[in-house]
Design a binder for these strands. Structure first.
Length: 542
RNA sequence: GCCCACAUAGCUCAGCAGGAUAGAGCGACUGCCUCCUAAGCAGUAGGCCAGAGGUUCGAAUCCUCUUGUGGGCACCA
């Protein structure tokens, strides 16, 4: 059991014995040494109901607290009414063995054991290369999936796409126009067509493979474009270390009748009606301020229709947890899908939508407006080639997804050596180097060790931080906010670098050397486990 | 106009199931390699946590309003 949980339980018991009825007992890490290692503001929250001074309550609770002398060195009150715990050094020292024993399972949990999760992300239609805009989605999705796996979930990474629809039709027309352009025929480029160079390349490939014989509106234009672009997207994802388990095509739900079925069901519930030649979903009956179009007057369904069928399919597949990673532009649309699912009598509690804010791309101090159609974008491949997948992944994960992050291209490329990810990886590389160096001096990294020798404050600080990893991972599992893991690792690296500056690992004192080797071994394990979750490499040399 | 997010150091951002003195990186300035990698460490400067109210013993964190930024409000996805 984790330290905080143990104390929480004991503190609750003590409060009850003292005659109080505690509701939520919160224990936090103390910022100041003179407040011990951990603190609780329980007395302050009890004061009002108990009509007693917080300090008196603190004293009363402390009087009933049963000290576990393997863990707690001291418990004492401080104004205006905190209860502080001083934890024994021996407890922190014992973490070394605990971490080493757990190895790559340290930080894992079984909260998701025998459960399945589906994470849908990227889901970009194959109209162009994967851009930096998609990058944030891709990295968040993959990392969230990693976090769930870390907690025992069996995760399906899924990519949902649509190769019918207006976007794809325009894509085909754009390729077609470029093809005939290559043949010297001046034909009008479609309005809102895709202007990127990749379109010309595809047209050229078609010309090389099939000659000049193609006629206008040949389906091959679109098919070839889709195939080429999809292969390209998949490659870009692999470059980022991302692999999908399943690709689901929207078309499926037309072909298998799911869409007709659910439309009929809604119709039976009188939630669908016809107006102005279109078919509407009566969302005003479900608490919305306006109805939504389901099928346009052209006969084409809007995205809501297949999306709803798709989500119903995911629900029917029986996942315990369904996660969608959406950009802020979807903020207004997914509620319609959830509404429809609920109207169909489905439970949606286990669906979690993670919205991330858009990335603002900055080059030479100016904002760039990205558009796939206008070919105004920076591809993931370009970025990964320049700075490497580790930097890209870290950059997208180090900030909360609710922040509108600025991606300064010049900073990311020119100053990539100063990127915080290196700071973190450097800690790992340093540890590896020390161990290796030690071995060359005849130090056995697996030797018996006595952690009671780890008494330097930088050693204890390092241990305290390393020991928090499981708690951080639990929290990440609940909030699904990957940046907390990145921030934690940054903090751990700081503690390590400080330790490195203050303590030599390889010394003349063999017993001390063995203890410190064990210490850095445990830190290495935490760094590796954490970096693995972030999908970032842990280099042995830098 | 309506809805959702965001506003914290010069810049990029952490911190937010309310807790004691608000942090990091970059940039600026000082020191530290005869010693396991200086991609590091130590230190200085830099803040009315957008503004105004409110809840509370206690607010950067929760609520309301104002201002500003991004995104949505389409028979685009």
């Amino acid at each position: 059991m984790k330290l905080k949980e143990i104390l929480q339980k004991q503190l609750t018991e003590a409060a009850e014995k003292a005659g109080f009825t505690p509701h939520s007992v919160v224990i936090t890490s103390s910022k100041d040494e003179k407040h011990g290692d951990l603190s609780s503001s329980l007395p302050l929250s009890l004061a009002k109901a108990a009509k007693k001074s917080p300090m008196a309550i603190a004293e009363a609770i402390i009087g009933k607290f049963e000290i576990d002398d393997r863990i707690v060195a001291d418990i004492f009150p401080s104004p205006p009414g905190f209860i502080n715990f001083k934890i024994k050094d021996s407890y922190f020292q014992s973490l070394v063995s605990e971490i080493i024993k757990a190895g790559n399972t340290f930080g894992q949990s079984d909260t998701g054991k025998n459960k399945t999760a589906n994470v849908e992300f990227v889901s970009a239609n194959p109209t162009g290369p994967l851009t930096i805009g998609h990058g944030r989605n891709a990295v968040i999705g993959d990392t969230v999936a990693n976090i769930l796996e870390n907690h025992g979930y069996n995760v399906t990474r899924e990519y949902y796409f649509n190769d019918a629809g207006r976007q794809m039709r325009l894509l085909g027309q754009s390729v077609e126009a470029r093809y005939f352009e290559l043949l010297g025929k001046e034909i009008e480029f479609p309005e809102d067509g895709y202007e990127g160079n990749y379109i010309k390349e595809i047209a050229q490939n078609i010309l090389d493979e099939h000659g000049k014989s193609l006629t206008p509106s040949d389906p091959l234009f679109k098919e070839k474009a889709e195939k080429t672009i999809f292969a390209d997207i998949e490659k870009s994802l692999v470059n980022l270390g991302i692999h999908f388990d399943q690709f689901t095509n929207e078309k499926t739900f037309y072909e298998n009748g799911d869409i007709d079925r659910f439309l009929d069901e809604l119709k039976a519930k009188n939630l669908i009606y016809e107006k102005d030649g279109a078919t509407w979903f009566r969302t005003t009956n479900l608490g919305k301020d306006q109805d939504r179009v389901y099928i346009k007057s052209t006969g084409e369904p809007t995205y809501r229709v297949p999306d709803t069928a798709y989500h119903r399919d995911k629900i029917n597949r029986g996942f315990d947890l369904i996660i969608d990673i959406f950009g802020a532009d979807h903020a207004d649309t997914y509620p319609d899908v959830l509404l429809a699912l609920e109207a169909l009598g489905l439970k949606t509690d286990h669906i979690r939508i993670l919205l991330y804010q858009f990335v603002t791309l900055i080059r030479k101090g100016e904002k760039i407006k990205m558009s796939t159609r206008k070919a105004n974008f920076v591809t993931m491949d370009e970025l990964v080639d320049e700075v490497g997948a580790d930097v890209v992944r870290y950059f997208f994960i180090m900030r909360g997804m609710n922040s509108h992050l600025n991606f300064d291209l010049d900073l990311a490329t020119d100053q990539s050596e100063k990127n915080p990810v290196f700071y973190l990886q450097y800690a790992h590389a340093r540890i590896c180097n020390i161990i290796k160096h030690g071995e060359s001096l005849g130090v056995n990294p697996q030797a018996h060790f006595d952690t009671s020798l780890l008494t330097n404050s930088s050693e204890l600080e390092l241990l305290k931080t390393a020991g928090k990893f499981p708690e951080i991972m639990d929290n990440a599992n609940e909030t699904l906010e990957p940046q907390s893991v990145a921030n934690y690792l940054q903090n751990l690296a700081t503690k390590f670098h400080k330790f490195y500056a203050e303590c030599r690992v390889l010394t003349d004192d063999n017993t001390l050397t063995s203890a410190r080797i064990a210490l850095i071994n445990s830190v290495k394990i935490v760094l590796e486990n954490g970096l693995k979750v972030l999908g970032i490499s842990a280099p042995e040399r830098m």
